[in-house]
Nucleic acid binder design. Sequence first.
DNA 1: TCTAAAGTGGAGTGATCACTCCGTTACAAA
DNA 2: TTTGTAACGGAGTGATCACTCCACTTTAGA
Lengths: 186, 186
Amino acid sequence: MAARAPRADALRNRSRVLAAAEQVFVARGTAVSTEEVARAAGVGIGTVFRHFPTKAALIEAVFRERLRRFGEEADQLVQADDPSQAIWVFLNRVAEVAAGKQAWADAFAATNVRDALTPAREQLPLALGTLLERAQQQGAIRPDVTVGELVALMLAVSRVPELDADGAALRARVLAIVFDGLRARA
Amino acid sequence: MAARAPRADALRNRSRVLAAAEQVFVARGTAVSTEEVARAAGVGIGTVFRHFPTKAALIEAVFRERLRRFGEEADQLVQADDPSQAIWVFLNRVAEVAAGKQAWADAFAATNVRDALTPAREQLPLALGTLLERAQQQGAIRPDVTVGELVALMLAVSRVPELDADGAALRARVLAIVFDGLRARA
DNA sequence: TCTAAAGTGGAGTGATCACTCCGTTACAAA
DNA sequence: TTTGTAACGGAGTGATCACTCCACTTTAGA
């Protein structure tokens, strides 16, 4: 009955696979073969499937890990001093990380990570909710916006295609328009 | 040298395949097999490949056809009388058609349709440019927005995921925020 | 140090696809 | 109507994947 301690190499390999998968998925999309993920992680393909029973489970785990880290960043911003700026800092940060990464919507389509964004259960939506409420009390953001709408907007903006040569500039201008839509009217 | 007239069945089959492919791609994504497209069109798989040499070419053709129809709608709105409303009508129409259709960004990722959105070459960006200019002269839309930004925004919004039970309502609220960002300030 | 069990790696398996090939069919022009 | 040819259909081909299986290795606990 007493569970044995997990083996050190198993833990190490698991996090290696997660890190390598994130890199590879972000760079080349979630359509890359599991074998390539294994190669990038320096493990055999059998090891990948031991830790993540299906490819969908691997994609989901990568996405959840990314959201978890966003949750930590949001929490740190909740502690910080300047409440009216905090939410803009966070949204900019999300846009920056998401820039040009096709893998995100793939992950959303392929897996069921909705509950990772459900308030009252996960760190990210809770912290983001706090940031949003504060910004609304300060009059920085219009009062009728919800956390769900914010998340949807950021997911949408993360998919802005590279229409012209300077994709970064286009993304910045699109983001500025969306932010203006979020601001409270005088 | 004198080219023979194209066969009636070839023309018929080509448009049948295009129509069936749009239906199937929109309903189930561009990952569906070419054989399913052929079945939906009521033709053999060989016929599909005769008209569209690769699957990517088929996806691109479906997407271009969709853009072409949007271009026609935009042109009709250019003729219409109420210039300050025309662009909102058009943007709403695009959002309505795009709602819940995962196939779009797939098409964008998989094919090279950028030039179908290049102004001065295609109907859609030209007509949309006219609608935008008018709306800006009327003071309905902020003067610094470009056609490219509009297109990018609409592509992004078309990818708003279904985060909660009522996907349509979420999309509507997200669209309202984006539209507010586009409006000119008093 | 010893050993039972957990973990590893990678060849192998079956399924799925995009695409080809060619015998048959249907059309346009004469 | 006849005929040359463009178009059709669908079995077949080769490549790619996700996933399995098991002989071997490494680890935790005694």
